[in-house]
Write a protein that binds this DNA or RNA. Structure first.
Length: 588
DNA sequence: GCCGTTTTCGGCCCGACTGTTTTCAGTCG
């Protein structure tokens, strides 16, 4: 947890430096460093202790010293000084859409406002409007931004935002004059949560398209509408609001614009630097040699002219992708041949084995693994040993009876607080595939081993094929268990235990950086939906996004194997056959 | 605050939109 604490502290320094009107590049350095730290899977205290901080990109002597101070004392001098100077609520003011550091500093210095409540008061009293450089329109914007932030709260999960974006993108494609349209931004990169929806379209003329867009059903509020771009707030089915930006360009610029609006910002900055090194410039209209457009219509051209292979959107994070010599063939949904974690009526699922199997066959899958809960998961109607024996027979019978899909007999076996498995080895051995998961004591209120030790104990069990949702986190709902991921991936690599990317958008667990770490250590992955309902099979794509962000190729995802090869792969761990170590696309 | 295929100093990505400005600053992505 220490890394995220440090990243938060660095981001806070950046916020406060902005208020302090510090040099923007200096501010940016802190933000970049925070981002780098978030991507580091090693404990930053270890990196610091071994004097390897300056090996990290963008970290120099000065930042390294501050990090050293943080890991040894929990403080950073410059942060303490800034904290003494500015009230804590002020950085929150800066987060309000329409407010930035300048306006936050202004209301603080002129009107003594220190927090959101104070801001609301001066909006109501009319004092804000009288400040120099502000007017009625700006105040209205800030008031709306405040309202939006309160209703919107936090970033929107991928699984909520993507379907909304797809509906809007399709409606835009159907407008007259639109040649093509695509979802860009962090959604295209498959991030687990997103700030807003970015859509790009090629259209001529642009303006009628933008005018139609701001009148779409579901649009609650228009934030901006110019000749080439418009921003709106739309209401989603769950009543929450989300911002949607539409940008329209001419077809010759589509590729450059798509690259630019896909980001990440850090990736795009690196690309522009490459352009400058070639005496060119890159903007959203194209790659330019003076006034001559060298490339622009297609993204591939931009990368190619800059001497790079095409880089898939999911790995555009400036985390090593510029060193790639060729375009990696990352796993796609089409590579997935089966779902190896799903539930039936036998425990807490909604459908029978047959119904789940037929639905999977309809998706083109070659196999599934039925993995109902084990006996200790009483709230999930976990199966007693007796019921489990009968269930295994029922699965085998269904496998024989139903054509066109293989059904593996599996279970999702609880890892108990003492690290033992919820079923005896005899039952696990009777299964074709065993997912071991922690469901109890996640917050560690129960007595027993640490979550790390429980996971390690399960990994050492030869019958355990995979660890399910390894950190137990629920996005926005429950933090991850404190898992020593270094220890877990090492043990998994040594034993041939597979780690799951749980594709359910509430979980996406392993998350991208951990999956990347696992791949680098030689661990194979499985992407499962944990479906309790056949509709949930559709969530596979979210897990694929995460796997792609980790740099996973089909060869490293076991449910891309044929059924025969999958069974062989499972047997290799059971037989204690040491797996040769495989390198990942990226180092951790 | 970082960093080096013109550099150890002087750069550091680029453009759209809005509002309040009478030529541009602030914010956003």
């Amino acid at each position: 947890m220490r890394n995220s604490e440090l990243a938060r502290a660095l981001d806070r320094i950046a916020d406060l430096l902005e208020l302090d009107e510090a040099d923007g590049f200096r501010v940016n350095t802190y933000r970049r460093t925070a981002r780098t730290i978030r991507g580091v899977t090693e404990d930053i205290a270890v990196v610091a202790a071994e004097n390897r901080l300056t090996d990290l990109p963008g970290i120099g002597k000065s930042t390294a010293q501050k990090i050293q101070q943080f890991v040894t004392t929990g403080h950073i001098d410059v942060l303490d000084e800034l904290d003494a100077k500015y009230p804590p609520g002020l950085s929150r003011l800066m987060q309000i859409p329409g407010m930035g550091p300048k306006k936050a500093a202004l209301v603080h210095s002129q009107l003594g406002v220190t927090d959101v409540e104070g801001l609301k008061r001066i909006i109501a009293s009319g004092e804000l409007e009288k400040l120099p450089g502000l007017g009625a329109a700006t105040v209205k914007k800030i008031a709306e931004g405040l309202k939006f932030q309160e209703s919107f709260g936090e970033r929107t999960p991928l699984g909520i935002a993507l379907p909304v974006a797809e509906v809007f993108a399709q409606k835009i494609r159907e407008l007259p004059g639109v040649a093509r349209a695509e979802i860009a931004g962090s959604l295209r990169r498959g991030m687990e949560t997103i700030g807003d929806i970015d859509i790009l379209c090629a259209a001529c003329p642009c303006e009628p398209v933008l005018q139609a867009f701001i009148k779409f059903h579901g649009v609650k509020n228009v934030l901006a509408a110019g000749p080439t771009k418009a921003s709106v707030v739309a209401e989603m089915e769950n009543g929450r609001e989300i911002q949607i930006d539409l940008r329209a360009v001419e077809n010759e610029s589509y590729g450059a614009a798509l690259q630019y609006f896909t980001g990440s910002k850090e990736h795009s900055v690196r690309l522009r630097e490459r352009a400058i090194a070639r005496m060119w410039s890159l903007n959203e209209y194209g790659l330019w040699d003076g006034k001559i457009r060298v490339a622009g219509a297609e993204e591939e051209e931009i990368y190619s002219k800059l001497g790079l292979p095409f880089i898939p959107p999911e790995i555009r994070e400036d985390r090593g992708e510029f060193d790639l010599k060729s375009t990696p063939q990352l796993v796609t949904l089409a590579d997935i041949h089966g779902d190896l974690h799903l539930h039936t009526k036998a425990s807490d699922g909604r459908f029978t084995i047959e119904e789940m199997a037929v639905a999977a066959r309809g998706l083109g899958y070659a196999y599934i693994a039925v993995c109902d809960h084990s006996k200790s998961s009483t709230i999930a109607n976990g199966l007693t040993i007796e019921r489990m024996r009968e269930h295994l027979d029922a699965i085998r019978e269904a496998d024989k009876r139903i054509d066109g899909i293989g059904i593996l007999a599996g279970c999702e076996c609880d890892i108990l607080p003492d690290g033992s498995m919820d079923y005896p080895d005899e039952i696990l051995a009777a299964c074709d595939w065993v997912v071991a998961s922690i469901h109890s004591g996640i917050t560690r209120t129960t007595k027993g081993l640490s979550p790390t030790d429980r996971t390690l104990a399960a990994i050492e069990n030869r019958w355990v094929s995979a660890i399910g949702h390894p950190t137990g986190r629920l996005i926005h709902e429950r933090p991850a268990m404190e898992i020593d991921m270094d220890a877990v991936v090492k043990a998994a690599a040594r034993t041939g235990t597979i780690l799951e990317i749980n594709a359910n958008w509430h979980r996406l667990d392993l998350k991208d950086v951990h999956a990347r770490q696992a791949l680098a250590a030689g661990v194979d992955l499985v992407i499962n939906t944990d479906a309790h309902h056949m509709e949930e099979y559709r969530q596979m794509r979210y897990g694929v996004f995460t796997a792609r962000r980790a740099g996973a190729t089909p060869g490293r995802v076991v449910n891309c194997l044929s059924q025969n090869d999958l069974r062989k792969r499972i047997a290799r761990k059971r037989d204690g056959e040491l797996l040769h170590s495989k390198a990942g696309l990226f180092q951790p």
